[in-house]
Design a binder for these strands. Structure first.
Lengths: 344, 344
DNA sequence: ATATTATGCGTATACGTATACCCTATGGTC
DNA sequence: GACCATAGGGTATACGTATACGCATAATAT
């Protein structure tokens, strides 16, 4: 529209045109009720005509609120590689959308985890709070989290929601998800179910999924065989190696529950290479429902996490934390997506 | 380390402790050479001890430079879906890394394209410049770009680097890539090569890839058959539909060059469903080298774009533009990744 | 020895907004 | 008719940093 090619208008310009003072402009545009309706309407009209925008820096400096959140990925195995776990990417979409809805900007960083996050983002007033995402070495992670808590950094994280978790956490019901997967495999007649994924306390989410599987099996009168659990981190290679090791052990099994789709995909490759038929010989279930899960052959049955709610809850929890409102951990239900890899 | 639990230190605090004035602190920390080495060292030491960080808002307000870039995705087909083209995600990784290296923060948004970007990011001093990414309706896109140019918004975009392109552009050598793909198919003995992808000027990148294919064929004495080109947007469904239509036409072909991996994957599914053997009956080449390309069966031969350089060049070009340095469009070479879908 | 320039730093102020505080005119209360 | 509350908006100032300018002192030139 009719826009001045001149310098950017300030609240003083508007004030002058409206015949009021600058603070009145500020009040009017921020919705203060101590401005008459007529004055406000006039100011808003002029602001629109001039294409006025509040200067973010000045506003943040004065109010000490940036209306910006920082999203940080924590993932240690691939410092240089641009390969990001596809699961987190769909989370990213969800979070950006929610930030936009709530009127917040989103700053993102894939940098390696270091101790200076509070400095880099909060102390320098780049963002009001931090969202943490990522798998990785949980022990290392944990010490960093403790540091953040100590520094009184405002943050929320995605992860395993257990009692001892540090800071404010939002996550899926991993135990429940494990049960879903286990029950489904049992329903289709499988009795000896292997689990691929780190079950130590280095990876609480995987641990929970395994616990859920075990509970489902016990509920059906089956006893989980610890020898059928193999460690794996969330990568295709790791899944491939774990499945090969399992096969090499000679221990029979008729199903695999993998702690992530990447693991499952690697495992399926190993099984196929070993001449096994899927799902007749071995049924496979993954976790995350990444896009590739629908492309494998057979297509992969998996547990889908509620990404849409995840982003909403993460952002909402963090904003409540910033406002010092009461806020509790959230646990999200999951959904089983049945595909060919368990279709008998 | 020994950190005051009190309010955040300012440059005045440092100045007081160092026995100098606040501006000297600012100069010292910003590397001005009109500060003696001794004074600077002392100031830096105190700043470190106090865990001092420059306040981003105050700094940006005063200097009128935010040291922040905004990354905007433009993709119209899926306004609500969180499904993002995997290709752009690897670009995202590359860009974030480069921003970090250059000392810039990255603001990201997946919002729908609208006319107010300059307002939302540049005019409000949220960022110094904008990076545009995305496929989509090019005609619509084009009008928006013209608007940005008119508003003197500082931006750079990823796309087809042709003479009439608007604004500063960085992109792959799509014509050259098409030639690479075509030559490879010809080398393995294919003569009737189909192309799946929009070849109209709605999608200049796809158009260029098709042009490269045609040039390769003509160079080998073959004449491209226009009937073997079928429109498709970058999605699996679209690729599936296009391939089915091609099969239904009854026109024989022994190879497909798809304008993107997603299209190729959809096409492979259609071919398999039709009982054709890959690559014996039909060889397939995709584009982008998304992670899933290595998971299909057969694994997909594809053209890889140089993501690492892409991020570097985009960021570098934009920063040069911000500094009013001379900057030109860049064209990046591509690399053919041979996999099973063309292994005869 | 005087003029000249560079070095190192302090003084003053601008960046644009938000908010605490104060003031003026109403209107209603007894 | 003196009294107080309220609406509506002005005045002053703070947020923390960066930069134009000026002014010494010291270094160099002539």
């Amino acid at each position: 529209m009719g826009r001045q090619p001149s310098a950017k208008p300030t609240s003083f310009d508007i004030a002058y045109l409206a015949g009021v003072s600058q603070p009145t402009v500020s009040r009017a545009l921020r919705g203060s009720k101590s401005v008459s309706a007529a004055t406000r309407a006039n100011i808003e009209r002029i602001a629109r005509e001039l294409n006025y925008t509040v200067d973010k820096n000045a506003s943040s400096l004065r109010s000490q609120r940036t209306h910006t959140l920082a999203l940080l990925f924590f993932e240690d195995p691939t410092p240089d590689q641009s390969m990001i776990n596809p699961f987190f990417l769909s989370m990213l979409g969800s979070i950006t959308r929610q930030c936009a809805l709530r009127g917040y900007d989103l700053l993102i960083s894939f940098q390696q985890m270091h101790n200076d996050w509070h400095v880099a983002y909060q102390d320098s007033h780049r963002s009001d709070g931090i969202i943490l995402l990522g798998y990785g070495d949980y022990q290392l992670y944990r010490s960093k989290l403790e540091h953040l808590v100590e520094m009184d950094t405002k943050f929320v994280r995605w992860g395993s929601v257990s009692d001892d978790s540090i800071g404010l956490t939002v996550g899926s019901d991993n135990v429940g998800a494990g049960m879903q997967a286990g029950r489904h495999l049992i329903e289709i007649g499988r009795r000896t179910i292997a689990f691929l994924g780190d079950a130590s306390d280095h990876a609480p989410e995987f641990q929970d999924r395994y616990a859920g599987l075990c509970r489902a099996m016990e509920g059906a009168g089956l006893s989980p065989d610890p020898a059928l659990q193999r460690d794996a981190i969330s990568s295709e290679e790791s899944g491939h190696a774990a499945a090969r090791a399992l096969l090499a052990s000679g221990r029979p099994f008729d199903a695999i529950f993998a702690a992530s789709d990447l693991i499952a995909i690697g495992a399926m490759r190993a099984l196929t290479e070993a001449g096994l038929r899927l799902p007749q010989d071995v049924a496979v279930i993954g976790f995350d429902d990444i896009p590739a899960a629908n492309l494998t052959s057979p297509t992969l049955t998996t547990v889908m996490q509620d990404m849409k709610s995840a982003g909403e809850l993460l952002v909402d929890a963090l904003l409540r934390r910033l406002d010092n409102l009461p806020v509790e951990r959230s646990v999200l239900p999951t959904r089983l997506i049945k595909r060919q890899s368990t279709a008998v």
